[in-house]
Amino acid sequence: MLDDRARMEAAKKEKVEQILAEFQLQEEDLKKVMRRMQKEMDRGLRLETHEEASVKMLPTYVRSTPEGSEVGDFLSLDLGGTNFRVMLVKVGEGEEGQWSVKTKHQMYSIPEDAMTGTAEMLFDYISECISDFLDKHQMKHKKLPLGFTFSFPVRHEDIDKGILLNWTKGFKASGAEGNNVVGLLRDAIKRRGDFEMDVVAMVNDTVATMISCYYEDHQCEVGMIVGTGCNACYMEEMQNVELVEGDEGRMCVNTEWGAFGDSGELDEFLLEYDRLVDESSANPGQQLYEKLIGGKYMGELVRLVLLRLVDENLLFHGEASEQLRTRGAFETRFVSQVESDTGDRKQIYNILSTLGLRPSTTDCDIVRRACESVSTRAAHMCSAGLAGVINRMRESRSEDVMRITVGVDGSVYKLHPSFKERFHASVRRLTPSCEITFIESEEGSGRGAALVSAVACKKACMLGQ
């Protein structure tokens, strides 16, 4: 009897593995994704193909990295998701002549009506938060230079001027797309009239992360975010950046690689679950690469896999709870928690219980395998993109072996128990001629924006502006 049951459990697990095998990517698959990513990057950089390229390769006008001589107080704003952060950054000489960066910050959550109302409502709310922060720190009387981390696709015309191309991540505030974001912020500050600010720089969160990590390690020339969304930036040779005049030196390019796949480059790798996630998203047909990796989508992918296993009578005796059938019910943090389970399955059992399920031991094991399959594919897909960037940098610099540091931020990278190990191992397999160091950014977005502002202020002083 026991043997029969054991055989049935083994057969069930084997069927589960057959279904989950769809998520496995072979090294040849990853090399294919990497080569296609490089081709799209090239198209994004070139003037004649930029418009139709899915990977936009947006110039950021960040050319210099901090040298350690900029000092002063800077205000930093960070808008990239449902939370908005205001930070005071003091850049100065530390002990023994070292450079020191001290920060104080406060988080504000953005109400739904500000995210989806008008641009005026959104930026009025942001300036209200700045006003509140300055009151708390008794700094209303000071006109501070301000660095703005704005983590949406922007076409820069200068370091302090950028046109919002399109909202992502659930934002829909009308009247912002096609307009200068810094102008919208300046107008809102003017409307309030109770404080003055000098907006000197606007950067993407990947750029802010790279600059913040450069402060720790001067070989950091790539910034990457794996959180709600997924994106990367890197220092490109100016001669390859056709959208900006000049051939000397390097400029940081914001790849906006989340949109890779929007022209069909990933079609052969998309599964039924991916198509369902895409169809029910706020932007169907867009940001397809990001939807395979980002935390906004990972939990939902797992939920759809679990429903398939229920329908195949391989999980929960073929019956799903009402909660499990509800879109968004299986949160991405559950994926991390399930994979963090120590082996007694308590954590998995508790999560499934909150979803109205009474799982068996085998159910718990199957749910864990589903989570591992989805998150491992995410790590491997992400590795193909980064390997594409790094191999490109090595080739354009004609280096036999390139040493490089990548600064990384984002909740999936930082909080998932195995993502970074799987990701690092896969990147290294795909970049055999590179020695890569990964560092995690601390308060990256805010500190990085302030350091970019410090560079901009120093330049302005040198130019006598």
Results as ranks from 00 to 15, higher is better:
K420A: 12
E196L: 02
Q465Y: 11
S353M: 11
S426F: 07
T361N: 10
E265Q: 00
C230R: 00
M197Y: 01
G407Q: 00
K104A: 08
E421I: 10
N254T: 01
T326L: 12
L307M: 05
H141M: 04
S151Q: 02
A53P: 04
K172A: 10
S100W: 08
N231K: 00
L164F: 01
S383H: 02
C364N: 10
G264C: 09
L276P: 07
G299L: 05
I436E: 02
V33I: 07
E272F: 05
V91S: 07
S100I: 03
M210S: 02
Y215C: 15
P417R: 12
F195S: 01
L314N: 11
V408M: 11
T332Y: 00
R36N: 04
K190T: 15
L276F: 11
E196T: 02
N179K: 15
H317S: 15
N83D: 04
E290R: 04
L185R: 00
L357T: 07
C213G: 15
G81K: 04
L47N: 09
I225A: 00
Q106L: 09
V302W: 07
G175M: 00
M107S: 07
R403P: 11
Y289H: 14
G117S: 13
L243H: 11
V374A: 07
T255Q: 02
R36H: 07
A454R: 03
E112P: 10
L271R: 12
G407D: 03
R392N: 08
A201S: 00
M402S: 12
F74L: 08
K56H: 06
S336M: 00
K140D: 04
R377G: 03
Y273S: 15
V427Y: 07
C213F: 02
R369S: 15
Y215I: 07
V200Q: 00
A53S: 06
L79Y: 04
K31S: 11
E399H: 11
R43K: 05
E242R: 10
L415M: 04
A201P: 08
L271A: 09
T149Y: 03
S360I: 13
E339D: 05
F419R: 10
R191D: 04
S353W: 08
S375V: 09
L88V: 08
A282K: 15
R369G: 08
K346C: 10
R303P: 04
F316N: 14
F171G: 01
Q219E: 15
Y349I: 03
L79M: 11
R85S: 01
M37I: 09
Y61N: 03
I225T: 03
E248Y: 11
M107Y: 05
D198F: 07
G178W: 05
D187M: 00
M462N: 13
A378C: 06
H137K: 07
K12Y: 11
Y273N: 05
E157I: 11
G407W: 02
G193S: 09
H317C: 15
G162N: 01
S426G: 13
G356E: 12
S441C: 14
D29S: 12
I159Y: 01
V33W: 00
L430T: 08
H156N: 00
F260G: 01
F148Q: 01
T118W: 02
T376V: 13
V200T: 06
R345N: 08
G249A: 13
S340C: 06
A53Y: 06
D78Y: 07
G285M: 13
E300Q: 08
G295L: 02
D158M: 04
N166V: 05
S426R: 09
I211V: 13
I390D: 02
Y214P: 11
D311Y: 06
M462Y: 09
G264M: 13
D73W: 14
Y349H: 06
T405C: 15
D29G: 07
D158A: 14
G264Q: 13
E256R: 01
A114D: 10
L88M: 06
M139R: 11
M107D: 05
S418D: 11
N179C: 09
R155A: 04
V389T: 08
E157Y: 13
G246W: 12
D267M: 15
A114L: 12
M87C: 11
G261F: 03
I348M: 12
L386N: 00
V427C: 08
P359S: 10
K143D: 04
V401S: 10
D198A: 11
G162V: 02
